[in-house]
């Protein structure tokens, strides 16, 4: 590029180099996130192996239909996020804003369904430490399963909330014409984060809901 782009920070030679550095930076952050969730997945694996029957009993208290629906909703939000990246790369401001808002809407639908599930668990008395009056078989193992359920899905939901905030910021910037075909890096970087959150759910869904 002959002329200096305003988005180019002075330590980089050109936008392509800046894009590569930003992308690698996000991937490095995502690696720490993989290990962050990895600890929980490892804990889950250890106790699921030890208390297979109790975890199966606990899993049967989750709503498979809502879990499957939420998986479809989150995969759809990943599609609209990918389409946002495309819209940004071809410099289509209106389409970009629309795709970002649609991604946020799908994220909110996911969180609403999750919230309904939590509310339902509370009414059934299946929230360890808050309201737990489960009387079926393997009570302490079912409690442990539900602790994993709430911590893992809760942490995942927290990531969704942070992602929604980032998407809202992107949508405002997109509407103001911040991005162009030459500069779409922030949309791609936040996109990486959003897809990562989707991947975490891709593993949570079978482990928590389906193995009952």
């Amino acid at each position: 590029m002959a002329e200096q782009h305003t988005a180019l920070a002075h330590q980089f030679d050109d936008l392509a180099q800046q894009h590569e550095a930003s992308s690698l930076g996000m991937w490095a952050f995502l690696l720490t996130e993989i290990m962050f969730f990895g600890g929980l997945f490892a804990g889950y694996t250890v106790y699921r192996t030890a208390y297979a029957a109790g975890f199966v009993a606990g899993s049967q208290h989750l709503d498979i239909l809502l879990g499957t629906l939420n998986t479809a909703v989150l995969i759809s939000s990943s599609l609209t996020m990918a389409l946002s990246v495309h819209a940004a790369q071809v410099g289509h401001r209106q389409l970009l804003t629309r795709c970002l808002l649609l991604t946020m809407l799908l994220g909110l639908v996911f969180l609403s369904i999750k919230g309904y599930e939590y509310w339902h668990k509370y009414h059934e008395g299946l929230v360890p430490g808050v309201r737990f009056n489960y009387t079926g078989p393997y009570p302490s193992q079912v409690q442990l399963f539900l602790i994993f359920y709430f911590v893992m899905t809760g942490l995942h939901a927290l990531h969704m909330v942070i992602g929604l905030g980032l998407l809202a910021l992107l949508a405002v910037l997109a509407w103001r014409g911040w991005f162009s075909a030459a500069y779409s890096t922030p949309v791609e970087i936040i996109g990486l984060y959003w897809h990562f959150v989707d991947i975490v759910w891709i593993f949570l869904y079978p482990l928590l809901y389906l193995l009952g």
Binding site: G38, F41, L192, H195
Partner: peptide, 30 residues
């Protein structure tokens, strides 16, 4: 999701190394 939505298929070798490191470490952990 990693290959297409996250563009790794079209990314630099260095990105592949980072993603590979992630898989390797979580594999070690488990």
């Amino acid at each position: 999701v990693v290959l297409f939505f996250m563009h790794v298929r079209y990314s630099s070798r260095l990105t592949w190394v980072l993603v590979g490191a992630g898989v390797l470490w979580v594999g070690h952990l488990l």
